[in-house]
Simulated assay, not measured.
Amino acid sequence: MTLLVIEDDQKTGEYLKKGFQESGYTVDLARNGIDGLHLALEGEHELIILDVMMPGMDGWTLISALRAKRDVPVIFLTAKDRLEDKIKGLQLGADDYLVKPFSFAELLLRVRTILRRGVAKDARDADIFQIGDLQFDAIKHKVTRQGVQIVLTKKEFMLLHLLIKRQGEALSRSVIASQVWDMNFDSDTNVVDVAVKRLRAKLDAPFEQKLIHTVRSVGYMFSDQP
């Protein structure tokens, strides 16, 4: 994971960079608000550590500009310790606010907590799909097309989930068998083909647009494209 530290004090910035790198993170470091905003908008960072009092652009202005375009998590790390400052930072969209002087162990814990929260949210979002007229919700174990609920067996649901997660990819029968049945594929068995046939009968047959496609000499692919 990549972090962005925006800190004008050279000693503090290098200390943070070294500490996070030793904790397994990749770290970009900006020494003023203008460069920091540029990196925040152009780079791919999982979280930003942001000072308030900086040359060129202060942290308040920076997070306001950032929030207008991106939703990356931000932790304020600043000497501004008044309650009013903390409230202002959180109202501007910060995810956390830590006052200097600080414990790196505490900062690292806060970073990890926010990142875990984000990973959990991403995992939940990755289990809910809207593809054309199909709605797939792995959390509620529910599949609908054109508002009509489609009742699937456990294996059919697992098969569809795999195909959807890797939509646009041609999946071999061996990959499908290992992921859905936890078994090595035997060319003498037609378990995958039978399951796909049953799934198609429920998911595709009643509708004009077909979503499960046969890829000759390979296997199957899920796509809402013809």
Rank of each mutant, 00 (worst) to 15 (best):
118 G>K: 11
22 E>T: 10
102 F>K: 03
142 K>T: 13
18 K>Y: 09
37 L>E: 04
79 A>Q: 12
108 L>P: 02
92 L>S: 08
89 G>Q: 03
73 P>Y: 11
69 K>W: 08
124 R>P: 01
76 F>V: 05
24 G>N: 08
147 G>C: 05
79 A>C: 09
137 D>E: 08
28 D>T: 08
25 Y>S: 08
69 K>F: 07
100 K>F: 09
19 G>C: 14
101 P>N: 11
94 A>G: 10
138 A>M: 12
119 V>S: 14
94 A>M: 06
159 L>P: 00
126 A>C: 08
93 G>I: 01
106 E>V: 15
138 A>N: 11
17 K>A: 10
60 W>G: 01
75 I>P: 00
18 K>P: 00
92 L>K: 09
32 N>S: 12
74 V>D: 00
97 Y>R: 00
88 K>R: 15
18 K>L: 15
145 R>Q: 04
111 V>P: 02
64 S>Y: 14
21 Q>R: 10
108 L>K: 13
136 F>D: 00
83 L>C: 01
42 E>S: 13
68 A>G: 09
69 K>V: 11
121 K>E: 13
96 D>K: 02
58 D>M: 08
78 T>H: 03
122 D>S: 12
107 L>Y: 03
131 I>G: 07
26 T>F: 13
95 D>F: 02
107 L>D: 01
60 W>C: 04
27 V>F: 08
92 L>F: 14
82 R>W: 04
50 L>S: 05
136 F>W: 07
44 E>A: 09
17 K>L: 09
87 I>L: 14
52 V>P: 00
104 F>M: 14
110 R>Y: 07
153 T>V: 02
127 D>A: 14
53 M>L: 15
141 H>P: 00
78 T>E: 03
85 D>K: 02
